Structure formats: structure tokens, C-alpha cells
Amino acid sequence: MSRGSGHAPRHWYADAPVPLAARALAGLYGAVAGLRRDLYRRGVLRRQRVAVPVIVVGNLVAGGSGKTPLTIALVERLRAAGWTPGVASRGYGRADAGTPRWVEAGTDPALGGDEPVLVATRTGARVRVDRDRVAAARALLAEGCDIVVCDDGLQHYRLERDLEIEVIDGRRRYGNGRLLPAGPLREPPARGEGCDFRVLNVGEATDLAAGFGEWPMWFEAGPARPMRGGRSKPLSAFAGQRVHAVAGIGDPERFFAMLRGHGIAVVPHAFGDHHAYTAEDLRFGSDLPVLLTEKDAVKCAAFATDRYASVGIDARLPEAFWVALLDRLPAAPRKESASP
């Protein structure tokens, strides 16, 4: 079952003809985007630097590729290395997109954005949403953050960055290889070659092959956490059962496949990325358990019942990746010890 808006056009990732109008618009889009990149490269448009290191996690395609799980893992790893990270995000799909806002675990996703709320909930880090990422980075600096992680923003060239990480969907990659709207690409694939790190979202730990300078990233599923309170259950507790599975992410099939891999009989319900849920969306006509991604669960808390559970994932990467990334950064600032 597939509902909601925001699904990729069929010709992006399937063997389907590209409309002529989309091809013409892609040529115009490519010219404008290329001119903008060139103006920044030549210094006609000026980049702005903030007084702390900036790491941008992004992708070249429209839609999800695993950026947010990597952002969460990056924040946690930086904190373990002695940094105080803050997260800057546009907060895609916010109702008041023009208003800068601090996002916390209890922020309404309609105001803060589903992904920023998830990042704040999982990490406890300071999260700032703002169309102007330079302003967001400066706000984080004023709050005591000594390193900024941008969740998305590879194309936001005005903010100078110290490291760029491109995240690639290992299953869909660059689709048909065309620029928007003829294909999914916001920039040509060659843009990724200039990034400091390229992370390949392989999805499953059993498929870790990566090459061409790409680091594999895989996901480990957590337990199913009831959204109305109660004890968490391992996914194995649902093995052999039918469940409604809800995913409004870039590639819903990844979530469904993960559940099937635990022996769960999935009744799939795919929605568009960043879908704004209503209670009516989740009335499925049966009393089966409902398993949602964490990103979807933050938007469904108001009308969840005791049948609803959130399934989180943790991004995992080779230890060598973290060593290489931290080696590219200066030493974390020394924190002053509290007085006894």
C-alpha cells in the first residue's frame, strides 16, 4: 500500500521514459545550478566562516539516503571525542519555515521538522532550524557548541565547511543519472568526488561491499518501543506475526525488508518522505500491531494507541572511518573542570 505525497516519479529509479518537458527543465536547472557553483568557486558569491569546525552531511539526490542516522551517529561520536556538537538543519516541511527555531525532544514536528526533532530526541544536542545555515551555525556557537554538524546542506554553499560527507543510497544510488526534474540529482555525480568522505548506505550488515573510496554504513535495528508506554520488545517477539508497517522515508522498502528479515509478516504502508500524518492515515481496518520508523513516530504520537510501537535504527560504520574523520579535525577543545 502506498499513499501520501512526495513519492519519487517512476522514471527516476525505474526503466521508464523521461517526459520531454522534464528533460528541458533539467537543462535549465543544470545551467542555473552550475552557474551558482561557479560564482562561489570564483568568489563572486562569498562564503561565510564561523569560528568552529563545520561538518556537512548531505547527498546529491532529492530525498532520503540515510543522512539523519549518520548525523545522529556523528554527534554521538564527536561527543565521545570531547566535542560539544550542535546540529544545524533547514527543517524540511516546517509549517513556519521562515522562522528560526530551537528544536528539542518535545517540539511539535510540524514546527521543528521531523528529522530535527528526531535528532534532538536521540542525542540531546542543541538543534537549530533555519533556512540560513550560517545564522544557525552562529546561534549554536553562541550556545556553547564548539563544532557544527549540518544535517543536509551540501548545496548550501554560503556556509564554509571543513568537511563534507556525501551519503549514497546503496540500492538506488543516482537513479537514472539525470538532474531534476528529469532525474533525482540536485548536482552531477562528479560533485561527490570533491567530498572528503563518501558513505554508502548498504542497509544490511550482511552486504558490506563498498569501493571507489566509499565507506559502508549499515543499520542495526533496536527494539520496538510502545508509543503509549510499557516495556520494549525485541523485534524477534513479532516473528511469525502479521503487523502493519508504516514508513514515510526516502526508501520505505528498506524498513519493510528489515522487518521481514526478522521473520515478521509485513503489511506495508508506504507514505511520501516527510508525510504529515493524520489519525485517518493509520486506520487500517484491523487490530494488528503497528510498527513505525522513529521518524514517523514523532509525528504520530498525538493519536497513537497501545498498538503502536516505534522501531529505531543505529547507523554503524567501520572504526577506520571514525579514525579517519577525527584525524581530519583539530583536537577537541579542553573543557574546564568544575570546581570541587
Results as ranks from 00 to 15, higher is better:
Gly229Leu: 08
Arg254Asp: 08
Gly177Leu: 05
Pro223Glu: 08
Gly98Phe: 01
Pro19Val: 00
Val323Thr: 15
Arg126Phe: 06
Ile313Tyr: 00
Cys150Glu: 03
Glu253Phe: 01
Arg46Gln: 14
Gly82Pro: 09
Asp38Pro: 00
Leu140Gln: 03
Val202Gln: 00
Leu35Glu: 07
Pro17Glu: 00
Arg94Gly: 12
Arg186His: 04
Arg171Tyr: 03
Ala332Cys: 14
Leu282Lys: 09
Ala209Ile: 01
Gly98Arg: 06
Ile168Trp: 01
Ala125Val: 02
Val54Phe: 06
Val75Trp: 03
Gln155Trp: 07
Ser310Glu: 07
Arg128Leu: 07
Tyr92Ile: 12
Ala239Thr: 14
Leu141Asn: 07
Asp296Glu: 10
Pro109Asp: 08
Glu193Val: 01
Val52Asp: 03
Gly211Gln: 12
Ala139Met: 05
Gly106Tyr: 06
Phe197Ile: 08
Thr68Gln: 11
Ala139Trp: 11
Ala80Gly: 09
Arg334Ile: 13
Lys295Arg: 13
Arg37Thr: 05
Leu28Asp: 05
Arg131Ser: 14
Lys335Val: 15
Ala97Met: 10
Asp38His: 13
Asp281Thr: 12
Arg260Met: 03
Val119Lys: 02
Ser337Arg: 15
Pro53Cys: 04
Asp169Val: 00
Met258Pro: 01
Ala210His: 12
Arg242Asp: 13
Arg172Leu: 06
Met1Lys: 12
Asp162Leu: 08
Gly112His: 00
Asp108Met: 04
